[in-house]
Design a protein around this nucleic acid. Sequence first.
RNA 1: GCGGACGUGGCGGAACUGGUAGACGCAACGGACUUAAAAUCCGUUGGGCGAAAGCCCGUGUGGGUUCGAGUCCCACCGCCCGCACCA
Length: 945
Amino acid sequence: MSRYNPKEVEPKWRAAWEKADAFRTRDDPSRPKYYVLEMFPYPSGKIHIGHVRNYAMGDVVARYKRARGYNVLHPMGWDAFGLPAENAAMQTGRHPRDWTLANIEAMRTQLKQMGLSIDWSREFATCEPGYYRHQQKLFLDFWKAGFVERRESYVNWDPVDMTVLANEQVIDGRGWRSGAPVERRKLAQWFFRITDKAEDLLAALDDGRLDGWPENVRTMQRNWIGKSKGLRMTFPFAPETTAPEGFDGVEVYTTRPDTLFGASFVAVAPDHPLAARFAASDPALADFVAECQRTGTSEEAIEKAEKKGKALPVRVAHPLMEGRTLPVFVANFILMGYGAGAIFGCPAHDQRDLDFARKYGLEVTPVVLPPGEDPKTFRIETEAYTGPGTIFNSDFLNGLSVEDAIEAAVAKIEKMGLGEGATVWRLRDWGVSRQRYWGCPIPAIHCEKCGVVPVPEKDLPVELPEVDAKEFETPGNPLERAADWLNVPCPDCGGPARRETDTMDTFVDSAWYFARFAAAREDAPVDKAKADYWLPVDQYIGGVEHAILHLLYARWFTRAMKETGHLSKVEEPFARLFTQGMVTHAAYKDLHGQWVAQEDVREPTPDEKARFEREIVPLWKAGRYVDFPGLFQLPAENEELRATLKTKFGVDGFIGAASGPFHAEPENWLCTEVNRVIGQLPSGVIPVAVFPNEKMSKSKKNVVSPESIAETYGADAARWFMLSDSPPERDVEWTDAGVAGAWRLVNRIWDIVEPAAGALKAHDFSKPPQTDDSIELRRLTHRAIAGVTEDIEHFRFNKAIARIYEFLNGLKKAPPAKRADGAPANGPRAEAYAQAEALSVLARLIAPFTPHLAEECWAHLGGEGFVCDAPWPEADPALLAQETVALGVQVNGKRRAEIVVPADADRQAVEAAALADEAVRRHVEGKTVRKIVVVPGRVVNIVAN
RNA sequence: GCGGACGUGGCGGAACUGGUAGACGCAACGGACUUAAAAUCCGUUGGGCGAAAGCCCGUGUGGGUUCGAGUCCCACCGCCCGCACCA
């Protein structure tokens, strides 16, 4: 028997596919198309196993659809612009382009080793002028169409490095390199007016256009777009207040006008004009505003900050409560970009307002009475009530429901001429400006005389200038220092002008790449006719982390491209979406909190374990510190400590060190056992903490490279393992044992197929034998077809794989051929037929998962052509029917017996069979049967007492 | 803080619309083969009690609805993702 050798077999088939150009896609309007796309990778350096999972999923779908007769498009490219390339340039002195292109080279090679059915002829990288020139054309067309706008907005400014920081470069409010507190700074920037399309972007989530999307992603997008109906109204200044010049009150926006009578303050954003007006003459207020400005620009940072405010020297009048006036605060949790940049606070019914009111001793008047509460005793303590109820303490709104009160309050304010009902969106316009080199240049020129003018189309592309790699060591944007590139004559007047130095957000690159893959043209972003054939993407696959921004931007781009004539038919870019989970892997930390590579970690020897138990544990149990070379141990073993440890460090079983940063809090240490160590006893052994499920990253030193896996087990085993076990949408933990199991499977399949060389040639599969011979095996085969097909269709690859295992287990145990009536088979022909059929089906069912092995099996069995071109097997319904079913029998809801009945047994027969069962009789003895519930094909429940 | 998911044996997970909890894989243990090991094959494996038949407990925690709850409802705990300049 020949042993299966993936090192020979896998490259052989990849070469054969390539030679035959097996995966090149041709436009063929006569066949139904299927466009499978996985989110293209950022070329970070190496493919990691998470990529393998992502692309293996897409490949299963692509190969399956191909087998089903579709004209499949499955392209690949590179999301090649972005920050990491510039960071690498700073650290290594390598030019971002060189770094990126080298990474692409390396990753392409690795990706190709995975045996993906990709049409590589369509590959591109977004950093190529051949791609971004079209993006600049789109930008110009969008600009012409009014979708582009320049306006001021805030960035994170590092005052020491004098540079703009990305949110991820702001750590605890400080610049990651300089450590200086970050400031918010206003810059003129480019925006895409995506809010103009908010209504349609929202509507499509629910009107059927996105039925192929998971509900959770649609919900997230809905919330993100955040349409809310409310009231925009003005609080006039109180009579005793001298209104500042130019202000005739404070305009606020609220979604809860029903709570107007519970208002106890008004608050404005730190960057609200009113705040600026008073800060100009009040240093303390100016300080407070500046302090708020020091919080980063991210919504998360603002929301998490402690609620703080400062009173302004004005009061406003409550328009509905005669004589009542409210204080006006500047508060750090009000966002200028949302609504009116100002709110009225109703502490009883909003948690943030309540926290704020308690801090500043403001009134808390409940106005919504929860059902069943007594208005006399109902109090708000530390928790705001945001649920439904009846309005009280509210004059003309009393007795109304929340909904009705909202309507009534809006009507009243409108009648008083103080405001009007308004719809506001949480969605903001898309700021696309980045003050960086490594991105698509924005095709604009700033002229002293003509202002901002577009680069004429004939001058596209605006290519990135050559810049010395050393330039990246200086903070700031190298484009601003590239004088030759920067200074150009104005295209309108010919006078002196400067190029725009902002480049585009990399989300722009990925907002239309799917269209380019499908319909690239030399002289235009997309070929409309081809796009009409291929779009939308039928199945899009990627991480949930992109559930909002990337997908929303691509949806907007599709609309904008349609309106500017670049696309015609497509409504939504991605018809079906699947969001897959991450791949995690164990990571290790030493006692100084430094990540340790797995290669450096080992299990302790029995000696080391014994010594630890002998010398350390008794001392620890005696309640003493242990000062062991390099180690100490903790006095107590208790659940509380363990829990603390778990929450604080996320580890199970850990050992403290006598030195290092963690020493400060020895009460947080607990030893359970030594799982993993580095170094050697007697003096140098150092236990390490095990974090079993960490997202793979270079910094954690827990990245698993598919190369080494493919080296040992082959690409098929790696693909198989990545798809088995965990459901695709969930995170999966990479374990070495897991791949080893997959490797065993590869061999098991080969061991079954190997003895059957040429088996497919001996049978005519269009003519199954008309006998009952080997019916069991044929049933097994057809159940496997039905199950695997169903599971692939529903993206349950882990279950599809489990079914293949079941098929395989059954195939090995396949009983000697028998007729259904139990008589011996009447000849070897039918048996051989069933065997050959089973193997033929097996080769085709595994083809999407382990394509190399499948080709090898197919060729060995004598199949025609490639298995990747073979049609998907069809299950024969007649062979799927069950003759008998096993039903669980419950007595009062507890399972007591199992009965086997004919599949078509009627209710009486099932009841009789259940009651006749001996175990059942024992349990109902002495009781009266009150009711028998029969769920056909499932269960029988006898209720007796 | 806000929004969205998730929580089932030693581990990854399965369980369709509320109907036999633990499919399938991993690990572990026992056995076969072998001078031996690896590989392979066969078997056992949620916990407890029991010689066995069988009984009791069991899907993060506490409550509820139901003939019946992993699944539905309420509250809580834990963990993961996103929060607009990471991609």
